[in-house]
Design a protein around this nucleic acid. Structure first.
Lengths: 334, 334
DNA sequence: CCTTCTAACTAAACCGGTTTAGTAAGTCAT
DNA sequence: ATGACTTACTAAACCGGTTTAGTTAGAAGG
């Protein structure tokens, strides 16, 4: 069935398609009342829906934003995306969301695809393996905002948690409750992912700030599937921490599985604190204390920063990273 | 900075843009080797990225699919979307995902926006308030697949859980453990959302199949924010069920909050079973038994069905709804 | 009555890639 | 030598909406 175009509407209304375009775009300054009514009636009768592809070609903008997430399984990622979505909606933009699974090749092919689709800008949680390509896009003055991770050069606005501060809060809380033997659980740092590296660094600094020794054996930083067995070996060795600090939600899940498997009671047998929250942690038998990221604020600011870049085209040589303060949610697990 | 086009590449390579287009589309049958190499070198030197907007205008297809979710807070929705994404990716399509928040007006405006953006098809979890518009799209032979909910006429392929069967399994499990006083918790049925209606119907039929009376007071079907207080009133009345069946994950969260607030012990003081799962339910102190939907299969089939419609253009007058068997995950909460 | 200005509307070029009919040169068979 | 066929390449129309310079008719002022 043939698609209705402006030409069809124009014929029906007895005007030119330029007039129909003026109507569609609410430009009524120089339009007779009778013309307006006839165009309106023709649109309604024919059920005309504009074709934004044609409009985008001419205007060189699509009203879409690409978001490339490094790992969508992290709850905070989806929360940040929700905030980006809401802010973009408010400004007439829509999102393509892609999940790179922490793989630079996947990220690269997504960037190519999104640029080809003429997205107006990109928000990327960078994997850390496409630095040369990022620079090319910088040279081409393509609007990009980074979130959650830093790359080697500050070429795009970057928004992320104050990770070391989050670790400091975690260790402070455990120390406040008298815990002096504190272990850490993380997902793998092989890829040098900013939050993981910085949170471990923050944990070490925080221990030192409390005059506590750093026990390297108590730092579990593995692929997710290997965390459980590594914790088991640590536990079975007999040299055990009194509490664990999980640096993200996926590490926390593996920690809780380990705790359940060993029939440990929180916080009697083991204290727990984590970075990033989940609805279920509040209603667990022992509600888990966490340090949240202000995900809504980060997402909203990321969207606003990108929209500002898109509109202003005011590209700087360098940008300062923007850090967000973590938020303690004190529950009962420490 | 000026965007590189095929014309620029053509000039650089000393060929026409038709030749460049042939190269880009890997049509080498009638292309000299020397021409091929010159075009290849020009593309690399200029860093040319094709403009899919122009291509879409001419070819009248965009390689994008719109997904409109009725309520994205349900975990199963995001699981189905993940499966749709994977299947679409495999076939060179990408998604716009929109959240209608169970509001027909929002759904309507999203449909308009996505059609204007020339998506190739739509997967909708229908809100139930745009039936006339759905019919218009049917008449226009626009490819659509419905998921999770049914509307008044079977005009598009529809994939959803066998909800009554899921309720039957839930009641069977509770009855098997000797529970004869079974309550139900649901989110609101005011909007006549298919799964909620069918699951309550299934619960009633299942009770009857076990010769158990239907206690209307034990059916809590409210707006999410009101479930807790309604459960409290029910509990305080003294006429209490022995177990609760939560018909979805959001109802379960409210039920678990109520249980925690009243310091009840699962399953000693109260049995719990629910439809839809979550990673945390497995590692709760009392792991919660659930009936899962085969979300991966539903999502994959929805994507395949839509892609098939897009390619074949073989629109039928009516479609039979496709039901999926629920999957029991027996844990320790009953 | 003539000139100038304004209101209302329109023709056609453009956005960038696709596609198809057309062109030119070379090869092969008669 | 000529005609038919094939290879390799290209010109230009097209997709649908935007936009701008141009046109026409009417009004107002001298």
């Amino acid at each position: 069935m043939k698609k209705i175009t402006m030409q069809d509407v124009a014929l029906k209304a007895g005007v030119s398609k330029s007039t129909v375009s003026q109507y569609i775009n609410s430009r009524f300054e120089f339009m007779g009342v009778s013309t307006k009514h006839r165009v309106e009636a023709a649109i309604k009768e024919l059920g005309y829906i504009p074709n934004h592809v044609a409009k985008s070609l001419k205007q060189k903008k699509t009203g879409t934003i690409g978001v490339i997430v490094a790992n969508i399984l992290h709850t905070f990622s989806t929360e940040i995306i929700r905030a980006i979505e809401d802010e973009c909606e408010r400004n007439g933009f829509h999102l393509f969301v892609c999940n790179a699974d922490d793989q630079p090749e996947k990220e690269r092919s997504y960037i190519d695809m999104l640029v080809a689709k003429q997205v107006d800008g990109l928000i990327i949680f960078p994997t850390n393996g496409n630095n040369d390509y990022y620079k090319q896009l910088k040279t081409a003055e393509f609007p990009i905002v980074f979130v959650d991770r830093i790359i080697n050069e500050p070429i795009f606005p970057t928004l992320l948690l104050d990770n070391e501060s989050a670790s400091q809060i975690a260790v402070d809380q455990l120390a406040k409750k008298g815990r002096t033997k504190i272990g850490l659980v993380s997902t793998s740092i092989v890829q040098k992912v900013t939050p993981r590296i910085e949170r471990i660094m923050g944990y070490k600094k925080a221990l030192e700030s409390h005059g506590l020794a750093i026990e390297e054996d108590w730092i579990v930083a593995e692929q997710r599937e290997e965390i459980g067995s590594r914790l088991q070996r640590l536990w079975d060795s007999g040299n055990r921490p009194e509490a664990f600090f999980a640096t993200n939600d996926l590490a926390l899940i593996e920690l809780l599985k380990f705790i359940k498997k060993n029939k440990l009671v929180i916080p009697k047998d083991i204290g727990v604190i984590a970075i990033d929250d989940s609805p279920f942690l509040e209603m667990a038998t022992t509600p888990i204390s966490v340090i949240k990221q202000p995900t809504f604020e980060i997402g909203q600011n990321a969207a606003d920063t990108l929209l500002q870049l898109i509109v202003s085209k005011d590209f700087k040589e360098e940008y300062e990273e923007r850090r967000y303060r973590p938020i303690l949610v004190e529950r009962e697990s420490i």
